[in-house]
Amino acid sequence: MVEVEKLREIAREVISRDDVRQLIGYRQGTYGFRARPAFITSPEEVDQLIFSPACVNNLATYLTLEEKLPVPRGQEPDLRKVAVMVKGCDSRALVQQMEEKAYERDRIVVLGIPCTGVVDMDKVEERFPNVLSRGEIALEGDKFILSFDGRREEVPKEELLADKCKRCRYPTPLVYDQLLDQEVARFADDDYSDIVELEKRSAEEKWAYWEEKFSRCIRCYSCRNVCPMCYCEDCVLDRLNPQWMRRSVDLSENTAYHIARAYHLAGRCIQCGECQRVCPVEIPLMELNRKFYKDVEELYDYEPGTDAEAPPLLATFKVDDREDFIL
């Protein structure tokens, strides 16, 4: 686990640099075990930074989310770098964004966190409901230690670990300027067993399954907005003329929305799982994304967000690409 003092020391150095305008990290949340994004602009603010298994957010999203306002006449745009703290999975979002030329490598400073896994906050809150005081979560060996209200609870890691971490291939960031701790070896592999199970279902079973899920979607677009790969300045969903997607919320439009989003992420989703984490009505969106991820790996031996020098999958063509699945 990253030592907080070391993290703050490095962050202080980084934010003191003349060529860095902002550092994005984590700080304590407002209640319970929550942690939340922190936006540091001066060395004085560095002491609020933390890292713990509660730091679930993928901060790579903020690199492409910031609104670019016109610069007032007579002023120069602020071209200084943005520094960002990333876990292994989050770092893949940076790699994929750079593969797609969202920005150049020299625009960012990456503080890599070798990650030993984060919690599933829903599981934590189910286990310890109604904790108001700001509690802390730490990992010691194979146990999460939760400290709150003068209590100290130990829970086996497996029971609170986020599902995505159970099959993480890249716990150590794939891109960084500074690594904040020792590298973490791959502690699991992804056998896609969950997706294999889903594939076995009949078309009717799949439809009944997704009908229940999609019918409760409220189209809050949190899945799109939290996604580090959903950074089109002009999203097809927001278009009014022509209007590609109706604003009506019903099963048909909701289904179209989720299928369109899944297709737009094929060969691009880096499996940070943020879409599924934020969904207020618990639609298992990663099942769609993982199905495409599996297909892409099997068909093209390609994993998104692993090589910033390689071209994006859908921008490549090889004469020996498989085409036996094309009708």
């Binding site: 189209r219 677009y221 949190s222 799109r224 907005n225 939290v226 934020v278 207020p280």
Partner: peptide
Amino acid sequence: SAACLGCGI
């Protein structure tokens, strides 16, 4: 608003 994603939740 720094952390806001701009979603409708």
